[in-house]
Amino acid sequence: MNRRPLVVAAATVGVLATAAFALPNLPPNPLSDAIDGHVYKEKGKRFATVAEAPTRGDRAFVLPSWIPEDATDIRIRVHTTDQARLIRFDLGATPLDGPRCPAGTPRRMDGPELGARWWPGHLRAEVRPECRDRYQYQVAVRGKRVYAWTDGTPSPGARP
């Protein structure tokens, strides 16, 4: 009996299983970015400061106007087939408040549809009123770290 096809099949299954577990946990690189974009329909970026983030061009990574100018360590994860987004950043001296993040009870929005290693679970209890720009965001603040997400619901009066 020829065992060569069985050995090749077993090796192929082993390589594919290893890749399935290892690739999602690798730091961002061209291979994991390509898999995220084509398979999961997601892409992400990281900016050290607000100044490094784009202000035009690919709107997916343009920051909402309610993020303070002195925010740092900004991470964004977007869904490429709709407007769902995750944003995480650290506050500087400027607090997160003002007319774009009003006080009140946030409207009911499901949890984020996206996932990222830097995104914590179970934020619902910490959600504060929504912040508005082009889209409505749910926001949770843990110390100086801010987590915001949107399902792409437009803000009242916003232009699409």
Results as ranks from 00 to 15, higher is better:
Glu126Asp: 13
Ala48Arg: 11
Pro154Lys: 10
Arg107Gln: 13
Pro64Ala: 14
Ala11Lys: 01
Gly57Ser: 12
Gln138Leu: 12
Asp58Thr: 12
Glu69Leu: 13
Ala48Asp: 14
Gly57Val: 15
Ile35Gly: 00
Pro102Trp: 08
Leu91Met: 08
Thr153Glu: 11
Pro64Phe: 13
Tyr135Ile: 06
Leu96Ser: 01
Pro5Ile: 14
Lys43Cys: 05
Thr49Gly: 08
Cys131Phe: 04
Pro102Gln: 13
Ala17Phe: 11
Arg117Leu: 08
Thr153Leu: 08
Thr81Lys: 12
Trp118Asp: 08
Ala60Leu: 09
Ile67Asn: 00
Ala20Lys: 11
Glu113Trp: 06
Thr12His: 01
Ala125Gly: 07
Ile35Ala: 05
Arg117Phe: 03
Val15Lys: 03
Arg124Val: 14
Tyr135Phe: 15
Thr72Glu: 14
Gly57Ile: 11
Ala125Val: 13
Leu91Ala: 04
Pro112Asp: 09
Leu6His: 12
Asp33Arg: 04
Arg134Tyr: 05
Arg56Gly: 12
Asp33Gln: 06
Gly37Leu: 10
Pro27Ser: 08
Cys101Met: 04
Pro99Ser: 13
Phe47Gly: 00
Arg56Val: 11
Leu114Glu: 13
Arg46Val: 12
Arg117Val: 02
Phe89Cys: 06
Ala84Phe: 03
Pro99His: 04
Ser65Asn: 07
Val39Phe: 10
Val127Phe: 15
Arg124Phe: 06
Ile74Asn: 05
Tyr137Ser: 10
Gly104Gln: 00
Lys41Tyr: 08
Val78His: 02
Trp66Asp: 02
Ser32Val: 05
Phe47Ser: 04
Thr80Tyr: 03
Met1Phe: 15
Ala158Tyr: 00
Asp73Cys: 01
Thr12Val: 09
Asn25Gly: 02
Arg142Val: 15
Gly98Gln: 08
Tyr40Met: 05
Val50Arg: 10
Ala140Trp: 13
Arg77Met: 12
Ser155Asn: 02
Arg108Thr: 11
Arg3Ser: 10
Ala11Pro: 00
Asn2Gln: 12
Arg100Gln: 11
Ala71Leu: 08
Lys43Phe: 10
Asp133Val: 00
Arg3Gln: 09
Met109Tyr: 03
Asp110Leu: 07
Ala125Gln: 15
Ala48Glu: 12
Ala11Val: 15
Ile35Cys: 03
Leu31Gln: 06
His122Met: 15
Val7Gln: 08
Glu42Gln: 09
His79Leu: 06
Arg145Trp: 12
Val8Glu: 05
Pro154Asn: 09
Leu123Thr: 13
Pro27Val: 10
Pro106Val: 14
Arg3Tyr: 15
Thr55Ala: 06
Asp33Glu: 10
Ala71Val: 04
Cys101His: 04
Val62Tyr: 04
Trp119Ile: 10
Thr49Gln: 05
Trp119Asn: 08
Leu86Tyr: 04
Ala148Leu: 04
Cys101Asp: 04
Gly98Cys: 07
Asp33Ser: 09
Gly14Lys: 02
Asp73Tyr: 00
Val15Ile: 13
Thr18Asp: 00
Leu6Ser: 09
Lys43Pro: 00
Asp36Arg: 12
Ala125Arg: 15
Ala116Asp: 10
Val13Leu: 14
Ala22Trp: 13
Thr81Val: 14
Ala51Tyr: 01
